[in-house]
């Protein structure tokens, strides 16, 4: 057992444009990724891994999506509680 503090995995890349994000972006209060957030909310699945910014292989199907980062594995719409 380690004594190191548990660090949460923090999303540091925008899953729409792949650019770096800050705490303000995550809180939805920065202007920089406003358009990205709007597109993600309406018409786009994530295309970049939020942890490393790599482009993911994304399969959209009628009721959801699956996105796979070669380094960080698979995320699905269901696991994100989205369509």
């Amino acid at each position: 057992m380690t004594t190191e503090p548990v660090t949460e995995t923090v999303a540091t890349f925008c899953s729409w444009c792949g650019g770096e994000t800050t705490g303000a972006d995550l809180a939805g209060s920065s202007a920089e990724h406003e358009r990205c957030r709007a597109r993600l909310a309406l018409v786009d699945p994530p295309r970049h891994c939020p942890e490393c910014g790599r482009r993911m292989v994304v399969q959209v199907d009628p009721m959801g999506w699956t996105a796979r980062c070669s380094r960080h594995g698979e995320t699905t719409s269901a696991s994100r509680g989205q369509r």
Binding site: V43, D44, V58, V60, D61, P62, M63, W65, R83
Partner: peptide, 13 residues
């Protein structure tokens, strides 16, 4: 068309 499209998402069906 209900549900998602090919690379874009639609409204929930």
């Amino acid at each position: 068309i209900v549900g998602n499209y090919l690379t874009n998402l639609g409204r929930p069906a």
